[in-house]
Amino acid sequence: MKIDLTGKTALVTGSTLGIGYAIAKGLAEAGAEVVINGRKQDAVDKALERLKREVSDARLRGVATDVGTAEGCEALIKAVPQVDILINNVGIYGPQDFFDTPDDVWQRFFDVNVMSGVRLSRAYADEMAKRGWGRIVFISSESALNIPADMIHYGLTKTSNLSISRGLAKRLAGTGVTVNAVLPGPTLSEGMTDMLKDEVEKTGKALEDCAAAFVMEHRPSSIIQRAASIEEVANMVVYVSSKQASATSGAALRVDGGVVDTIA
């Protein structure tokens, strides 16, 4: 299968590092013009420079704005008024006990993880429908189904991603625009690398081995028994963004390594 996204414009929120960057790279390799987004200009510039080195013929733009706010979304929409592929990837996470999580933290998680995708989808989906083609992908998490006891506020936002993607897919039925959610599990991104740095130094083991041990301790239901790479997650997103995925809409597509113990 050859995925060709030549002539398509793709926007990936939160794409200066990690899964978002890998998605942007995969889309660029498939020929799409890619818009990199992050909160800080220097981070956006560094991501653009890196991606130009790694994909020499990439067509790229960058917009620095905080899509966790209504004003930030408006600025992004003004800078990029039309896209064919929208990847709602931006997200924040962090453990905090339910009884110690104040209202402002709940609100911030909701604004970044949920409302960014709502606002951008609302802005871009109608024009996609008028053109008869478009792809919207929400990056959810296995935590949408396995709600973490120490991150209930995070789990809520990721479950919300599933509700919105399914409902919006139904709202756009028959238009040629597909809407899906992708659910990564434990993934060897910069966040996990930083978290395991001390363990790697202490044990002398390879990062991948420490990550696998972490997965088996905290997600023992994992079938692949290791962390996924950011590229493995990106591969699913690139596929579901493609012309070949035209019959996939309203789906929750798990790249969780089998962590969620269900056959549905």
Rank of each mutant, 00 (worst) to 15 (best):
120 L>R: 06
145 L>W: 02
187 T>K: 07
157 T>E: 06
175 T>S: 15
160 S>V: 13
139 I>F: 01
130 K>C: 01
159 T>F: 02
129 A>D: 08
127 E>S: 12
131 R>W: 02
118 V>A: 00
134 G>K: 11
137 V>N: 15
176 G>K: 13
116 S>T: 10
145 L>F: 12
177 V>M: 10
161 N>V: 11
125 A>W: 11
196 L>E: 04
178 T>L: 12
125 A>D: 07
179 V>E: 13
171 R>Y: 14
115 M>N: 14
190 E>M: 03
203 T>R: 07
176 G>I: 13
202 K>T: 13
135 R>T: 07
173 A>E: 10
177 V>K: 12
141 S>Y: 14
182 V>F: 10
187 T>H: 02
205 K>N: 15
198 D>N: 11
184 P>A: 04
182 V>W: 05
195 M>N: 04
145 L>H: 05
178 T>V: 10
187 T>M: 01
161 N>Q: 15
163 S>F: 15
120 L>T: 12
161 N>T: 09
199 E>N: 08
155 G>D: 04
133 W>D: 08
167 G>W: 00
156 L>S: 10
193 T>S: 10
121 S>P: 13
121 S>A: 14
195 M>R: 15
170 K>Q: 13
167 G>L: 00
139 I>Q: 00
141 S>M: 09
170 K>I: 02
132 G>Y: 11
123 A>G: 04
182 V>M: 08
130 K>A: 06
136 I>Y: 15
198 D>M: 05
129 A>G: 04
166 R>I: 03
184 P>V: 03
205 K>F: 03
158 K>P: 12
135 R>E: 07
157 T>F: 10
163 S>H: 14
196 L>C: 06
153 H>L: 05
194 D>V: 06
130 K>T: 04
130 K>I: 08
167 G>M: 01
150 D>T: 13
183 L>Y: 13
151 M>T: 04
124 Y>L: 13
203 T>F: 07
115 M>P: 08
196 L>Q: 07
190 E>G: 15
134 G>M: 07
165 S>E: 09
136 I>F: 11
157 T>Q: 08
203 T>A: 03
140 S>N: 11
147 I>P: 01
176 G>Y: 14
162 L>G: 13
179 V>W: 15
203 T>M: 07
175 T>R: 11
197 K>H: 08
165 S>P: 11
123 A>D: 03
155 G>V: 03
122 R>I: 14
122 R>V: 09
158 K>N: 06
128 M>H: 08
115 M>L: 14
152 I>N: 06
181 A>L: 08
174 G>L: 08
140 S>E: 10
172 L>T: 11
200 V>E: 02
139 I>E: 00
118 V>W: 05
